[in-house]
Nucleic acid binder design. Structure first.
Length: 215
DNA sequence: ATTCTGATTCTCT
DNA sequence: GAGAATCAGAATT
C-alpha cells in the first residue's frame, strides 16, 4: 500500500493541489483524471491545461466576485469546478490555491489511456477516434462529467472522479503560451502543454472582435 | 491547409 | 439583453 500511495496512479493529496493555479497547471501535466461512473471507467492523461487566477485575472470567472456559479473556485483545493458554456458544453477545472484566493486550472486536452470505447460512445463525433480528448468540452464529456459533478472532491478515493499522479514530465517538454479563447490578459502565458502530444488543441484567439482590413 | 459560422442556454448586468 | 474559458462542419476570407 505504501508503494500505491506514493507512486504514479495513486490519488493525489489536497496538499499537492493547494498551490497557486499557475504552479498547479504545470504540476497537473502528465497526471490523469479518472471517472468511474455507472457505465465504466475512463482515464485521461492531461496534456494541456490553463491557469485562471481569480482576483488578479480579468479572464477568470472569479474576477468580478463570488457568485453561485463560481463558488467552488474559492476552495478548498482539489475539488472539481464544472461550468456550462456556449449554451451546450461543459468544461472542467481543478480548484487550486487557498487563503481565500479563488483560482483553478482548466483541463483542456489529454490522451485517453483507458476506456477508449466508452469515450467514443460518449463523444462519437470527436476527432481522434477516442484516443485523445482534444478541447475542454470534449475532455469533459468524454469523462462523462456535467453540472452534477460540480464540487466533487478529486482527492477522495471514493469520489466518482479522482485525480491520479503521473510520471514526471521533463521541463524541456513543457511549453507555454497565451490561453485559448481568451481576449483579456494575452500577456500572461498561463497555458501549459506537453510538446508533441497528439491531444493538444489548436490555438484560437479569444474574443468576438475580428480584425478587418476595411469597413 | 486555415477561417468562418451556426448551434443553444446559462449567468450576470 | 449581451456575451460566453467551444465544437464541428462548411466555405474558401
Amino acid at each position: 500500500m505504501t508503494e500505491q500511495s506514493r507512486g504514479p496512479g495513486r490519488v493525489m493529496t489536497r496538499d499537492e493541489l493547494a498551490v497557486d493555479p499557475v504552479d498547479l497547471a504545470r504540476r497537473l501535466l502528465g497526471c490523469a483524471l479518472e471517472s468511474r461512473l455507472g457505465d465504466g471507467v475512463v482515464r485521461v492523461r492531461l496534456a494541456e491545461v490553463e491557469a485562471y487566477r481569480g482576483l488578479d485575472d480579468p479572464a477568470s470567472h472569479c474576477y468580478r466576485g463570488r457568485t453561485p456559479r463560481n463558488d467552488v473556485m474559492w476552495g478548498p483545493a482539489g475539488h472539481l469546478y464544472v461550468y456550462f458554456v456556449y449554451g451546450m458544453h461543459f468544461c472542467a477545472n481543478v480548484v487550486g490555491l487557498t487563503d481565500g484566493q479563488p483560482g483553478a486550472v482548466l483541463v483542456r486536452a489529454g490522451e485517453v489511456v483507458e476506456g477508449q470505447d466508452l469515450a467514443r460512445r460518449r463523444r462519437p463525433t470527436a476527432r481522434g477516434n477516442g484516443a485523445v480528448a482534444k478541447g475542454p468540452a470534449v475532455l469533459t464529456s468524454v469523462l462523462g462529467l456535467d453540472r452534477e459533478h460540480n464540487g466533487v472532491d478529486l482527492t477522495d478515493p471514493e469520489s466518482p472522479v479522482v485525480l491520479l499522479a503521473g510520471e514526471p514530465v521533463p521541463a524541456e517538454s513543457v511549453r507555454t503560451g497565451p490561453r485559448v479563447g481568451v481576449a483579456a490578459a494575452m500577456d500572461v502565458p498561463w497555458r501549459f502543454w506537453i510538446d508533441g502530444s497528439p491531444a493538444v488543441s489548436t490555438y484560437r484567439r479569444g474574443g468576438r472582435v475580428r480584425a478587418r482590413a476595411n469597413g
